[in-house]
Design a protein around this nucleic acid. Structure first.
Lengths: 178, 178
DNA sequence: TATTGTTATACTCTATAACTATA
DNA sequence: TATAGTTATAGAGTATAACAATA
C-alpha cells in the first residue's frame, strides 16, 4: 500500500512555533487531508470568487456548463455532488446576472436545458485562467509528472465513487438527493 | 502542467441516467474535487465513526496523539487545521470518555499536555485498521505506485500550505485562529 | 406512480469574540 | 503585552421534506 515516497522521510508538520508534529498514518487519511486542504485553500478561493464576482458553488456550474451546453439541472447536480435544491438557487442567481440561459426542454418539459450566455462563456474562460494560476502556486515544487498522476488518481476516485453513489441512490424510491 | 494521464481519455462523469458529462478543466480543479470527495466519503466516514463511537473530528485528535504524546492543544489545532475552540470541545469529550488524559504542563502552566490512555491507544489502533480498509475500497483498481504518488503529493501540498498559513497568521497580533 | 424542478425550514459545523489564567 | 485555553453566540453550507408540473 505504501512504497517509497513519503515513508523514508516521515510525514511531518512543521509549526511556526518550531515544533514538529508527526502525522503518522494520518498522512494517508483521505477525509483528514481533504478537509485540511479545503480550509487551507479557502482564503485563495474566496479571493478568486471576489475577483470574479461569483458565489460559492457557481464556479462548478459554469465550469461544467462550458463543456456540456444543454445539460439539465439534475445531471449538473449529480456531477457536482450537489442537491438539486442547491443547484436551483445557484442557477437562479447566475441567470439573474445574465451568465446563463434556462429553457424548458421541448422533449421533456419537466427539465431545463442550461446554456452559458456570451458573458457566461467569457466568465468561464477568465475563471479557468485564474484557477490555473492558483494551482501553479499550490503545486509549486511538485514535479509535473507527479501532478499529473495526482489529478488522474483524484478524478478517477471521485468519478468512481460518484457512480457507485448514483447506483445506490437509484435503488430506493428517489432518495438520491434532496 | 498536464501530460499523459487523463487527457487521452477525456475526464467523464457517467451518470446513472446513462448521460455522460464532460468534466473539462474541472477535472483539475482542486476545490471542486476535494469538496466532491468529502461528500462522497461521508456515508463511509459516518459508518466508521458509528462503529468506533467517535464524533466528527475526534479521529484526527486520536491519530495525531498516538504519534505525538504530550502535544499541546495549540499544536494539535495547527496541525489539524482546526480552531483551538474546536479542539477544546473535542478534547473534553474524549477526556470524559476516558480516551485521553489532560495535564497542565509544569514548564508552562498555561498549556495542556495531552496523552492517550490505554483505551485511547487501543481505539487509535482499531480506527487505523478500519480506515485502511476503507482506503483499500476507495482506491481499488488504482496501482499502488500511483496511490503512493497521490498521497505523497497530497500531504506535501497540505503541509506546505499549512506552514505558509501559520507564517501569515503569525504576522498580525495573534489572529491565527479563533 | 415516478421524475424535474421549486420552495421553506431545520440542523451541523465553523467563525468570531470576549473571557480567565498564566507568562 | 502576549499566549494557552475556555465559553457563548452568530453565521454559512447542507439536509430534509413538502410541493407543483410533467411524464
Amino acid at each position: 500500500m505504501d512504497d517509497g515516497h513519503s515513508l523514508l522521510q516521515p510525514a511531518l508538520f512543521r509549526l511556526k512555533s518550531g515544533a514538529q508534529v508527526r502525522a503518522g498514518w494520518m498522512a494517508h487519511d483521505l477525509p483528514f487531508l481533504t478537509r485540511s486542504l479545503r480550509f487551507l485553500m479557502r482564503a485563495d478561493s474566496d479571493m478568486l470568487r471576489r475577483e470574479m464576482a461569483l458565489e460559492p458553488g457557481e464556479i462548478g456550474i459554469i465550469g461544467l456548463l462550458a463543456e456540456n451546453p444543454g445539460i439539465s439541472q439534475n445531471d449538473l447536480a449529480m456531477s457536482l455532488v450537489l442537491k438539486k435544491s442547491a443547484v436551483t438557487k445557484l442557477v437562479q442567481g447566475l441567470e439573474k446576472r445574465g451568465l446563463l440561459d434556462r429553457q424548458r426542454s421541448e422533449s421533456d418539459r419537466r427539465s431545463n436545458e442550461l446554456t452559458l450566455t456570451a458573458a457566461g462563456r467569457e466568465k468561464a474562460r477568465a475563471v479557468h485562467l485564474r484557477v490555473a494560476e492558483l494551482h501553479r502556486d499550490w503545486f509549486a515544487g511538485i514535479p509535473p509528472r507527479d501532478q499529473a498522476v495526482f489529478f488522474s488518481v483524484l478524478f478517477r476516485v471521485v468519478a468512481t465513487m460518484a457512480e457507485r453513489s448514483g447506483e445506490a441512490a437509484a435503488m430506493d424510491g428517489g432518495g438520491s438527493d434532496d
